[in-house]
Structure formats: C-alpha cells, structure tokens
C-alpha cells in the first residue's frame, strides 16, 4: 500500500520557538539557568526533573507567566519571529489566548469553576470577538465531543465533573482557538492511572491531528515516553541532558539521568 505522506516541509523549515540563554533567579537562588533550545512545528518536548529542578520556573518563563532575568523566547508568529519576553503585554496576552495554550496540573487553575462547560470552552472564542451565540455553542459542543464529553453535559459546571473530565474540559477550552503551541504542567498529575491513560491517548490524537507543538513538564517518565519526541532533563536549574526521548531513557549519559531512570519502578 502506498501511504499519502503529509506535507513535511514545515518541519524542516524554521523553529516555532527558539529559546536562547534563558535565566531566572530568585535572589541568590537559581530558578533556571542558561536554557537554550529550538522547538519545531509538530514536536512534543518533555521536561523532566525532580521538584525544585527548575522545570516549572522554566515553563512559567516560556509561557510568559514570569519574566526571565535574561534570555530570549522567540516565537514564530506566522508573520515573523518575535521575542515574547520584550513584546508588549497586551500582545503577549492576546497570543496566549490564540496561538498558545496552557494546561494546568490542577483543572481548577485552568477552568472557571462557576461557569458551564460550554461557557468555559466558548470564552476564548468570545475573547477574540465571536458574537454569535448559536455558533459559539455549536463549536463548544463539537469540542466537548472531541474530548469525549457528552453533549448533554454542556450546561453543567465543572464542579459536577470527575477529575479526568475536568482535565479534558480544560484541554478543550485551550484548544478551541486552534493554538500552535501548548504548554502543559503535569497534565496527568493527580489522576487515576486508568484516567491518565485515556487522557494520554486523547492528547496523542490531538497532537497528531492538529499538528501541535507541545512543551510538557512532568516528573512521570512513563508519560514522556508515550507522549514526547524529545526530552530535556533538568537538575538544579540546569539542563543536564537532552535528546530523543527513548535514547535519553534507554541510554542515559548523565549520572543524574541514570539515577532517575534506574529509580523508576518497573511494572
């Protein structure tokens, strides 16, 4: 059988995100230091490390939630590369709710708990000017289906949802505007393993179908093995190793990565 290959020119083109010399300190303590990497369209990059390794600080700086001390975070906006660190706040926030998405570990941080599922999904649409109730609702219904939430739950508030459903709702709310870059902070943390599996499968499908680029922070090596193309291992605010996910996990080069990998319980 001959497989129609998807167009791959974009992948060899130019990076979607270029991070150069990113450093953030909390007084004398290092948050993250001298981080540089390129992320290409359609790539999923995992950042792993123990608590305090700087992975969350790095994610906050990348997503514009926190200003780095030095360094550049250059995003290809489609009209050209722009340094998001120095860009006007209004522009950055607009980008954060159109081209970017952020999935929080705790759905309560990423959802409006007092607003219905439909309203949660519709907010980004209304924020960019959608003013037709029927169309907003139709899009929300469609997105709920894509994250496997029944259409008749559209008017229920997230409070009435299970943890896994809340997380899927948060994903729908984020992806409704068709972002190109998604930041995820421990998206499967705090979920039962069976719920995790369903979420992982869903995320893989969405990444594939939408051609998303993803930066996912987690301490769960099983999650990155299934989701990430590339891996960055952090310790003490520094990147100690990076490479292809299964290479880093199967043939770790750095002492810390070897310890990390060998510490995982086999099942």
């Amino acid at each position: 059988m001959t497989a129609p290959l998807r167009t791959l020119t974009a992948e060899t083109d130019r990076p979607l995100l270029q991070v150069q010399g990113l450093t953030k300190s909390y007084g004398a303590r290092i948050g993250c230091a001298h981080i540089s990497f390129d992320l290409f369209p359609g790539e999923v990059m995992g950042i792993v490390g123990e608590s305090g390794s700087g992975k969350s600080t790095l994610l906050s700086c990348l997503a514009g939630h926190m200003a780095p001390d030095t360094g550049r975070v250059i995003f290809d906006t489609g009209t050209g590369p722009v340094d998001t660190v120095t860009m006007a706040e209004a522009e950055r926030r607009r980008m954060a709710r159109t081209d970017w998405a952020f999935v929080h570990q705790n759905p309560r941080d990423g959802l409006r708990m007092g607003v219905s599922a439909g309203g949660n999904v519709g907010e980004r649409l209304m924020a960019i000017g959608a003013r037709h109730y029927g169309e907003i609702r139709a899009t929300a219904t469609d997105w709920l289906a894509r994250v496997e939430i029944a259409a008749d739950r559209i008017d229920d508030r997230p409070r009435a949802f299970s943890g896994g459903m809340q997380q899927r709702l948060q994903i729908a709310r984020n992806l409704v505007t068709g972002p190109r870059l998604v930041f995820m902070d421990e998206p499967t943390g705090g979920l039962d393993v069976s719920v995790q599996a369903r979420l992982l499968d869903l995320l893989r499908g969405l990444v594939r179908e939408m051609g998303l680029s993803v930066i996912i922070v987690t301490h769960d090596l099983a999650v990155v093995r299934l989701l990430a193309d590339r891996l960055m291992v952090m310790k003490g605010g520094h990147v100690v190793e990076q490479g292809l996910t299964d290479q880093v996990l199967d043939d770790p080069q750095h002492a810390y990565t070897q310890l990390l990998v060998s510490s995982v319980l086999q099942v």
Binding site: L8, D201, L244
Partner: peptide, 25 residues
C-alpha cells in the same frame, strides 16, 4: 531528534520484542 523522529515515521520500522503502547487504546 526531529530528524530521527521523521526517519522512524517514514523510513525506518522496528518490530521489537516488547509492545509499548498507551493502555486502553
């Protein structure tokens, strides 16, 4: 890494002894 990812997607297949998949799929 991205070149290897692309190689594995289009050019190079691998049948290992172990099946590694997302549970429940």
């Amino acid at each position: 890494p991205r070149q290897i990812i692309r190689l594995r997607r289009e050019t190079l297949g691998y049948v290992s002894q172990f099946l590694r998949v997302v549970p429940r799929v």
